[in-house]
Structures are given as structure tokens and as C-alpha cells.
């Protein structure tokens, strides 16, 4: 009954060409990631071992492992998230659910968007001025984490805001009409449904906190430390910094070491991603509109 006419047959043909072209583009987009991973695995695999992961660097960082750097990265990422996620989410909730729209609010949004675009080295200088010197925290895990948190704050706020705004306004109205307060509405209706989007922002913040070198360079990370940090006022090592160090500052590092270090860093970030994917899909099963 519905057979292709001369005209539509041409259309069907064109649509095949189009989807082929788009498919190729997709492969092209995925290719760099896969190539980087492949190169790193190829070059880093010889160095990877349990010993590499669990022992400190030795012989002027030309031998041994990267354990202190892994621990340091965990400290920095964890502590910075502890600050940036609650602050960022609460800030975004205030901005979208409580603040009256107007010029001031527009200005604040503009400031946040711009802050997200500030280069990390500028955040580093801010961190030195504000946390290391002014707050007298010294070069410490705390100062470095706070600097990372400041850097990530606009990202968490922007991601949270987007996902809060994606929750239909009619849900809020229905909730208010049933005698729920603004806070109850946020807690029971808005936040649970915005969670997947917030999680995406958090994972991005994890990647940035784990990967950036500049903000921690002057604020709390050392090239090499003989022992693990005891508390947040100590300095620590970090994977990103360690990678920079053994690539450019130390002579005689085995060729496989930088690649293996990078692989560990990427693996950590990807596993954070994987966790969020699992959480999101589990979440999606329960809610749908």
C-alpha cells in the first residue's frame, strides 16, 4: 500500500548516505580516546605491576612505584569534593529554587559561567594568596584541596543548575499545592530527579581534580616525599604532578613509567565514570516521566 515512489526512493538513498557519514564521524570522535588508551597500554604495560602500584618511588624516582602519588590524589580529590559538591549543590539550589529572578541573579550566573572558564593556573595563584598565605594553611593538602574545590565549584553549580531546571516546573507546583514547603519540594521532588545530572557534574569535577597540575603545584603537592602524609596540613604527592615530574624533570626514568602512571590516572577517572553510569541507570529504572 505504501510503496516507495520515484521521489521517496531517492530520499531513502540519501538517508543511507547520511547515516553512513554520521556513523563515520562518530567513529572519528571516539578514535582519539581509543588511540590514546591503546598507546598508553602498549607503552605502559611493561611497568604495571602490583609492586608498581603499592611501593614508593626509589632511586631518585627512576625506580620503584607510585603509591604515594595514588594516595595523594585520593586525598586531594576526596577532600576537594567534600567542599565543592555540598557547596555547589546548595548554591545551585538557592539560585534556581529560592532567588528571585532579576539583574543580580543574571549577574551571578554570568560570573559563575566566566569563573568556569578561568584557567587553572589563575586558580592556583588565587589558592596561594587566599589559602596558603592569607589563611595561613601553608602548602598543605588542605590548601591544595580547597584550591581544587574553588576551581570545581562553578562546574558543580552549572551542572546542578542545568539538571534542576530540567525538572518540570509543574512538579513543583503540584507539590506546593499539596502543602509542601519549598524545602520539602526541593528535597522530595526536585533533587531526587536532578540527581543523574548532578552526578555527571560531580564526575567531571573528579576528572578535573585528579588531572589538573597547576592548582596543586604551588599549594600543597611535592615532587617527592619520603613518607605518606599524616594529616591534612602535610604536603602530599599526586599522580598528575608525578607524571609531570618524571616526564620532564628527572633523568633516567624508564620509558614505560610515565605511560603506566598516566594509565593509572585514567583508570581512576574512568572508574569514577563507570560508577556514575551504574548509579544513573539504576536511578532511571525507578523514575521516568
Amino acid at each position: 500500500m505504501f510503496e516507495a515512489t520515484e521521489k521517496t526512493r531517492g530520499r531513502v538513498g540519501r538517508s543511507h548516505v547520511m547515516s553512513l557519514a554520521l556513523g563515520l564521524l562518530t567513529v572519528l570522535l571516539a578514535a582519539p580516546t581509543l588511540i590514546v588508551l591503546a598507546v598508553l597500554v602498549y607503552r605502559g604495560a611493561p611497568a604495571l605491576s602490583l609492586d608498581f602500584l603499592l611501593s614508593p618511588p626509589r632511586a631518585g624516582m627512576t625506580a620503584g612505584g607510585i603509591f604515594p602519588a595514588i594516595v595523594g590524589t585520593f586525598y586531594l580529590v576526596g577532600l576537594s569534593l567534600l567542599v565543592s559538591v555540598p557547596l555547589g549543590v546548595m548554591g545551585a539550589v538557592y539560585l534556581t529554587e529560592y532567588a528571585r529572578p532579576g539583574r543580580l541573579l543574571d549577574f551571578v550566573h554570568l560570573a559563575i559561567v566566566n569563573l568556569a572558564g578561568v584557567p587553572s593556573i589563575v586558580h592556583a595563584l588565587f589558592g596561594v594568596g587566599a589559602f596558603v598565605v592569607f589563611m595561613r594553611l601553608g602548602t598543605s593538602i588542605l590548601a591544595a584541596s580547597l584550591t581544587l574545590a574553588v576551581m570545581n565549584l562553578p562546574i558543580v553549580i552549572a551542572a546542578t543548575r542545568e539538571s534542576l531546571l530540567a525538572v518540570p516546573y509543574s512538579f513543583r507546583q503540584a507539590s506546593w499545592a499539596l502543602g509542601a514547603s519549598r524545602a520539602q519540594t526541593v528535597w522530595h521532588i526536585v533533587l531526587p530527579n536532578a540527581l543523574p545530572g548532578i552526578l555527571t557534574g560531580v564526575v567531571f569535577a573528579v576528572s578535573r581534580a585528579a588531572g589538573e597540575t597547576a592548582p596543586i603545584l604551588f599549594t600543597g603537592v611535592a615532587f617527592y616525599l619520603p613518607s605518606l602524609p599524616n594529616n591534612v596540613f602535610d604536603q602530599c604527592m599526586a599522580l598528575s604532578m608525578h607524571l609531570f615530574t618524571i616526564t620532564t624533570q628527572v633523568v633516567g626514568v624508564p620509558e614505560s613509567y610515565p605511560a603506566a602512571t598516566a594509565l593509572v590516572l585514567i583508570a581512576l577517572v574512568l572508574s569514577a565514570n563507570a560508577v556514575s553510569v551504574v548509579l544513573r541507570s539504576r536511578h532511571r529504572k525507578n523514575r521516568r516521566w
Binding site: S170, F171, Q173, A174, S175, I189, R288, W289
Partner: peptide, 9 residues
């Protein structure tokens, strides 16, 4: 309200 809104729960 005029448009039916089932809350997502």
C-alpha cells in the same frame, strides 16, 4: 491543576 501531573514517584 488543568494539566494532569503525576509526581515522579
Amino acid at each position: 491543576a488543568p494539566l494532569p501531573v503525576g509526581l515522579p514517584m
